[in-house]
Amino acid sequence: MSPKKKKTDDLINFTIDGQPVQARPGWTILETAEQYHIHIPTLCFHPAVKPWGGCRLCVVEVRYGKRGKVMPSCLNPPLAKLEVFTHSERVLNVRRWVLEMLLADCPASKEIRDLAREYGVTATRFTITDPEEECLRCGRCVAVCNEVVGVQALTFGSRGVNKQLDTPYRVPNNACVACGCCVTVCPTGAMSTRLDLVRGDVSRRTGHGFAH
């Protein structure tokens, strides 16, 4: 067997929305779709950080034999012969509800409003607690600070409905190196209004995550 032949053997053949596609080993369904210019919406995925799987906007329905399942495309590798549907009824149902609820959760975000409109969601029936809110807790900022910058200046505090972007004791964190990466990766611009909550006295920065 020639090495070249072996290579094509490793490729995973499956379909997305009926179209035959090939994935390299290690690719996710989302990455494969991008190669073929098939659009799947995402909010928490960012190529600079490990996929976190929080926003669930990238969900697709997969059918394997008789079984159907909805799963996030940013985290799951394809299997040979898998049938993937990016816009099935079940998928759209998840996206529409998530978007409608996001309209109530971060009503100030234009990005969310635009995305929602693409899915025909223009109004929300849910209670808006903070009209100024833009942060959807997608975790990109936390991940980039931790994985790429390596300082862990910010984190999520509390849990569930109270989960929020935090620094210890909600005071600016001197571990922050003021690099602004968090602002860059933020999908809604929420981080730019919050940077001063994180960035401490830059002159005292220590450059690693252990400053208190």
């Binding site: 926003c55 669930r56 209670t127 409905v161």
Partner: peptide, 21 residues
């Protein structure tokens, strides 16, 4: 469940509250 959800993913964090509404 709202009090116990970790809050990582949106369908759970927002959806439990939504269903309760």
């Amino acid at each position: 469940l709202q009090e116990e959800s970790c809050g990582k993913c949106l369908p759970c964090r927002l959806g439990l509250k939504g269903m309760q509404e």
